[in-house]
Design a binder for these strands. Structure first.
Length: 436
DNA sequence: AATACGTTCAACCGCCCCCGC
DNA sequence: CGCGGGGGCGGTTGAACGTAT
């Protein structure tokens, strides 16, 4: 049994992330054959056997389509009779009025027929979710929103729906567009090649900016490899972007990522955030507990959760508390950005960031425990809903072999939020091991 | 003024997961 | 338990508009 790498210390059985996360996965695997995201498996998904995966995909799709025809599976909607393209104000009004009056009825496919819209149900769903539903925000992303998007993108990659869940009023589509058209360029400080330019680069056998870089002579293993062993261009682009972002992000937002330990190949992968800790704003008066109440507040909340699963209580450890306090101070300072980036220290670690001030220790622990407890499935020792990062805080809180905890709270620079750190010893969240 | 090039963003496509039967 | 259908999601496209030459 090996402990997880520092990067994954706080979470268990994280599903394979998209290539940006995999890009940072040059550390050795502590537990081969697992879903450990720190393993970049170049031997499988990203290798295109004949250098033209499109042909394979087309062939597979053809086979699939013929099967579907034989089996008589109905298409999502009759493409011949549905309207496509931009929505008219009349269509918008029809859809909005119906949903506001009746809801979706739990069946998007049937909805357009009910209201006489010549649209695919999926198109209606998208139009409602991305444009018509109430409280949608468009454009004008704030610096804090940019910060959250960048922090999460670096950690979890292009999981736009998860990122959108942390930004009330924003849609995944909006965030995706904003990232691709503005934020990525802002961070990289370069212009993406036009489609026309990309088309001109296709003679290299690869498309996209990473491939363009290779055509220009940037030496990489993939560039040197014969075409049939090349990584897909999108994967390479995301790997390259991810590596560059780790460095650039530090200067842009004052974040500390693993690349600061030496940078580039060989460093530990970036931290996977615990997403529920990015909580919406809660305007409360600033009431900082005394040191004693802070300790007992954290300890009591932890031990209440542990009692519920029959795990022995933790004791307060001043050394751990001091470690947590130093890191909280550094991270909440002007250069730290209050980013949810782990310290890579010797202890287990849960991080918290809430907007505004006035968060009590019990609130912080509740943010880790209250929802995540329901997400942890003891039978399978994994998080429900497919998001394996979703219950890592909770499993650390109730980790049986952890005996001591020390925590700290700090106010983010400019009073723009509260940052919390709990350090645990011995650390928990080992792959393949049940918390209790 | 005309054309080429770049940017934005709504919408579509297709894959995958989950749930009900 | 397997299958089919619906919903969710990420990737991609293309029209509209802006800017540079």
């Amino acid at each position: 049994m090996h402990p997880l790498t520092a990067a994954a210390k706080h979470a268990i059985t994280i599903p394979p992330p998209p290539p940006p996360a995999a890009a940072a996965s040059y550390t050795s695997s502590p537990s081969s054959g697992t879903s450990d995201p720190s393993v970049l498996d170049l031997s499988s998904a990203e290798i295109d056997d004949d250098g033209d995966g499109d042909d394979d995909r087309a062939e597979q799709q053809e086979i699939k389509n013929s099967k579907e025809l034989v089996m008589g599976r109905a298409p999502c909607c009759d493409k011949a009779s549905v309207k496509k393209g931009p929505w008219s104000p009349e269509e918008d009004a029809k859809l909005k009025a119906y949903i506001e009056e009746n809801g979706t009825g739990g069946n998007w496919i049937a909805l357009p027929q009910k209201i006489g819209l010549k649209r695919c149900g999926k198109s209606c769903r998208l139009r409602w979710l991305n444009y018509l539903r109430p409280n949608i925000k468009h454009g004008d992303f704030t610096e804090e929103e940019e910060h959250i998007i960048c922090s999460l993108y670096i950690s979890i990659g292009s999981r736009w729906s998860i990122i959108a869940a942390q930004l009330p009023g924003r849609t995944d589509n909006d965030i995706k567009n904003y990232w691709n058209t503005k934020l990525k360029k802002k961070l990289l400080g370069k212009r993406a090649p036009s489609r026309r330019a990309r088309a001109n680069q296709d003679h290299c056998g690869l498309a996209g900016s990473a491939a363009a870089a290779m055509c220009g002579g940037v030496g990489t293993a993939a560039a040197a490899a014969p075409p049939h062993q090349a990584l897909s261009s999108s994967a390479l682009e995301r790997i390259q972007l991810h590596m560059r972002l780790q460095g650039l992000y530090n200067s842009a937002f004052g974040c500390t990522t693993t690349s600061s330990n030496g940078g580039g190949v060989g460093v530990a992968p970036p931290q996977w955030p615990k997403l529920e800790a990015l909580l919406p704003s809660r305007p409360l008066p600033a009431v900082q507990p005394t040191d004693a109440s802070l300790a007992s507040g954290f300890l009591d909340a932890h031990n209440a959760a542990r009692r519920q699963v029959g795990v022995p209580p933790l004791r307060w450890d001043e050394r751990l508390a001091s470690y947590a306090a130093r890191y909280a101070a550094a991270r909440s300072g002007a250069g730290g950005g209050c980013a949810l980036v782990h310290s890579h220290g010797p202890y287990g670690e849960n991080l918290f960031h809430g907007s505004g001030v006035g968060w009590a220790p019990a609130d912080v622990v509740a943010a880790w425990v209250s929802r995540e407890r329901a997400l942890y499935d003891a039978a399978s020792n994994s998080c429900r809903g497919g998001d394996a990062a979703a219950c890592g805080h909770y499993t650390q809180v109730v980790w049986r072999r952890t005996t001591a905890v020390g925590c700290a709270l700090a106010t983010c620079a400019g009073g723009r939020g509260t940052y919390g750190v709990c350090s645990y010893n011995p650390p928990g969240n080992y792959v393949g091991v049940r918390p209790y």
